[in-house]
C-alpha cells in the first residue's frame, strides 16, 4: 500500500497533465516539423550531390581499376619484415550519413588492436573523432576539408605527395574506403597498397622489361595518387547516397511523429474544450437548482 503511493508521488511531480500539455505538444510539434524541413532539404541537397558524384564515379572507375591491374597481374605481395602497417582511411568531414564513417573506424580499430605497430593516415575529420581518444599515437596524418566539394585528382596528388614526404615506412599497407554498390548499399573495401620494395620484389616482376628503380618509384608514386583518387571518388558517392537514404528515413520518421503528435494535440484540445463545457454547464445547473 505504502509502496504504491510512493511510486505515484514522483509521477505527479514530474509533469502536470491536462491543460498545460497542450502548449507543450504544440511546441514539440513545431520543432519536429522544423526538423522534418531540415532533413527533407538535406535529402534534396545530397540527392543532387549524389547524382553528380555517381556520374563522376562512372568515369573514374576504369581509371581506378586500371591502376590496380598491374599489382594483380604482377602478383605483388606484401613485403616481409616488421616495418609496420600503414592504413589510409578514406572518409569525410561531414556526418549524418549512416554507417559510412563508423564502419571504417571499426575496421581500423580492429586492425590497430591486432597489430599495434600501425600508422593511420586519415582523410576526413569524422574518422579522426572516432580514433582520437584511444589511438591518438597511431595517427600519422589527418587530412581535413574533405567532402565539401567533389574530389579532384589534384587533391589526391597532394595527399599522396604528403604521405611520400612524411617518409612513413611500411611493409604492409591498405587503403580503406566505402565502395559504392547501389543507392542503398555500400561495401567497406580494403585495397592493398604496396611499398616500392614490395613492387621491386614481386614474383612476376622479372617478366617486365627494362625497369630501373627510378621508373618503379615514379610508377608507385603516381599510382598511389591514382588509387587515392579512385577511393575518394567511391567513398564520396557512397557517402552521398547513404546520406540521402538516412535523410529520407529521418523525414519519414519525423512525418510519423508529426501525425502522432497532431492526433494527441487535437485530442487534448478536444478534452480541454469538453471539460470547460462541463464546468460551465454544471456551474449553470448548480445555479439553476439554487434559484
Amino acid at each position: 500500500m505504502f509502496s504504491r503511493s510512493a511510486a505515484i508521488i514522483p509521477q505527479c511531480s514530474q509533469q502536470v497533465r491536462g491543460m498545460a500539455t497542450l502548449k507543450m505538444i504544440s511546441i514539440r510539434l513545431k520543432s519536429v516539423k522544423n526538423i522534418q524541413k531540415i532533413t527533407q532539404s538535406m535529402k534534396m541537397v545530397s540527392a543532387a550531390k549524389y547524382t553528380k558524384a555517381e556520374r563522376e564515379l562512372k568515369l573514374a572507375r576504369p581509371y581506378g581499376i586500371g591502376a590496380q591491374e598491374f599489382y594483380k597481374k604482377a602478383e605483388v605481395k606484401d613485403e616481409e619484415g616488421e616495418k609496420g602497417q600503414l592504413i589510409i582511411a578514406v572518409s569525410s568531414d561531414r556526418g549524418l550519413c549512416g554507417a559510412v564513417h563508423s564502419s571504417i573506424g571499426r575496421i581500423v580499430k580492429n586492425d590497430i588492436a591486432a597489430n599495434p605497430n600501425t600508422k593511420v593516415v586519415i582523410v576526413g575529420d569524422k574518422v579522426r573523432n572516432i580514433l582520437q581518444r584511444l589511438y591518438a599515437k597511431n595517427i600519422a596524418m589527418v587530412v581535413t576539408e574533405v567532402g565539401r566539394k567533389p574530389a579532384v585528382f589534384g587533391d589526391a596528388a597532394l595527399i599522396a605527395q604528403s604521405i611520400i614526404n612524411s617518409g612513413i615506412e611500411f611493409s604492409k599497407g591498405k587503403i580503406l574506403f566505402n565502395a559504392f554498390r547501389t543507392v542503398v548499399s555500400f561495401r567497406t573495401t580494403e585495397m592493398p597498397l604496396y611499398s616500392q620494395n614490395a613492387v621491386a620484389n614481386a614474383s612476376k616482376l622479372p617478366v617486365y622489361d627494362s625497369l630501373d628503380s627510378d621508373v618503379i618509384q615514379s610508377y608507385t608514386e603516381f599510382s598511389l595518387a591514382s588509387l587515392l583518387f579512385y577511393s575518394m571518388k567511391e567513398n564520396a558517392t557512397s557517402e552521398q547516397s547513404s546520406r540521402m537514404t538516412a535523410m529520407d528515413n529521418a523525414s519519414k520518421n519525423a512525418g510519423e511523429m508529426i501525425d502522432k503528435l497532431t492526433m494527441t494535440f487535437n485530442r487534448t484540445r478536444q478534452a480541454v474544450i469538453t471539460r470547460e463545457l462541463i464546468e460551465i454547464i454544471s456551474g449553470a445547473a448548480a445555479l439553476e437548482t439554487k434559484n
Binding site: E56, L59, A60, P62, Y63, I65, G66, E69, V152, F153, S226, F229
Partner: peptide, 9 residues
C-alpha cells in the same frame, strides 16, 4: 587497351 584520365574514359 584501357586509356583513362581521372574524369574521362
Amino acid at each position: 587497351l584501357t586509356f583513362a584520365a581521372p574524369s574521362q574514359v
